[in-house]
Design a protein around this nucleic acid. Structure first.
Length: 259
DNA sequence: GTGAATGTTCATTC
DNA sequence: GGAATGAACATTCA
C-alpha cells in the first residue's frame, strides 16, 4: 500500500490526535520497534503529549513529548485509526490516547517504528532524502531526477533524488506523461521534463487528497489489475515487465522513449 | 511446493 | 563512482 498518498492520508488522520496524551501502549510484536527495546519505547512515550504529525517522502514523523517517533510502512504496513479494539490480526503496536486509539498494522514487517531524540538522529534513521515529491518544482525534478544515468523509472523511485514515489506511483506518472519507464533520463527532452512534472503534480495531488493511489477508471493503477489489462486511454493491451527491479506496467502505444 | 507482493538495504558485478 | 542485479528481511496468498 504505502506510497506518498497513503502516508499523507495517515498524517492527516493522525492530526486529530494532536495535543492528546498517550495513556497506553500495547506492543503486540516488539520486532517492529527498531531502535529501542519495547520497554524503552513505552517508557519514552507513555504519558506524553502528541504533536503535529509531519510527512517526508514515505516517512511519518510524529513528535511525542521530547522525542520524534518515525513510522515507515514498508510494502504492507498501515496506520489504522480508531478500530484497534479488539486488535486486528496484524496490529503490532496499539496506541491508546485520551482522544481514541490507533495502531501500527503490518503484515510483512519489512520496516517499523523508530525513536529519535535529535534532528541528527532523525537524519541518520531516514537516510538521504530528496525533496518531497508533493512539493517538488519542475527545476527540482529536472536537477535531481535527471542527474544520473539510470532509467527514468529507477530515478523516480530513488528516495535520495525525490522522496515519496514508489512502484505504482512511478508507473502512473510515466503513463500519464507518455514516457516509457525504461527511457534513460539523459534522453528526455525539455518538453518531456515539463510534461513529466505536470503529470507528477496531477497524480500526487490526487493521491494525497484521496489518501491512497487512485484506482479509478482513468487511472493506470486501476487498470493494472485487470486481465487482460488494457490502457484506459487507448485500449491497447498493457505491457508488463520488470523495470528497475520492480513489476512494471506501461502502454506500448502511449508511452515512448523518443521526444 | 512455487512464485509474487505498493520497500529498502547490502553485497556483488559490470 | 554509478548503476544494475540478486538476495535478504518476514509473511501471506493464489
Amino acid at each position: 500500500m504505502p506510497e506518498l498518498g497513503d502516508v499523507e492520508g495517515w498524517r492527516r488522520l493522525l492530526g486529530r490526535f494532536e495535543r492528546s496524551t498517550i495513556e497506553a501502549i500495547d506492543v503486540l510484536d516488539d520486532g517492529v520497534i527498531r531502535n529501542r527495546s519495547a520497554a524503552e519505547f513505552v517508557d519514552a512515550l507513555l504519558g506524553e503529549q502528541i504533536g503535529a504529525p509531519a510527512r517526508i517522502g514515505k516517512w511519518l514523523q510524529v513528535p511525542v513529548g521530547d522525542v520524534i517517533v518515525l513510522f515507515h510502512f514498508g510494502m504492507t504496513g498501515a496506520l489504522s485509526i480508531g478500530d484497534s479494539t479488539p486488535a486486528h490480526r496484524y496490529d503490532r503496536v496499539v496506541f491508546t490516547t485520551d482522544a481514541g486509539s490507533f495502531s501500527y498494522r503490518d503484515l510483512r514487517k519489512l520496516r517499523g517504528i523508530y525513536v529519535a531524540s535529535t534532528a541528527a538522529e532523525v537524519d541518520a534513521i531516514v537516510g538521504p532524502l530528496g525533496v518531497d515529491a508533493l512539493i517538488a518544482t519542475a527545476a527540482d525534478l529536472h536537477d535531481s531526477v535527471g542527474a544520473g544515468r539510470s532509467s527514468i523509472k529507477a530515478a523516480l523511485m530513488d528516495q535520495s533524488r525525490i522522496a515519496g514515489i514508489g512502484n505504482f506511483l512511478s508507473d502512473e506518472i510515466l503513463w500519464r506523461a507518455g514516457i516509457d519507464p525504461r527511457t534513460p533520463t539523459s534522453l528526455l527532452t525539455g518538453d518531456q521534463w515539463i510534461g513529466l512534472h505536470r503529470s507528477l503534480r496531477t497524480v500526487l495531488r490526487a493521491a494525497a487528497r484521496a489518501g491512497h493511489t487512485p484506482r479509478g477508471p482513468r487511472w493506470l493503477t486501476g487498470a493494472r489489475w485487470r486481465d487482460p489489462a488494457t490502457c484506459p486511454e487507448c485500449g491497447s493491451e498493457l505491457r508488463r515487465g520488470v523495470v528497475a527491479a520492480r513489476t512494471s506496467v506501461w502502454c506500448p502505444a502511449c508511452q515512448h522513449t523518443g521526444g
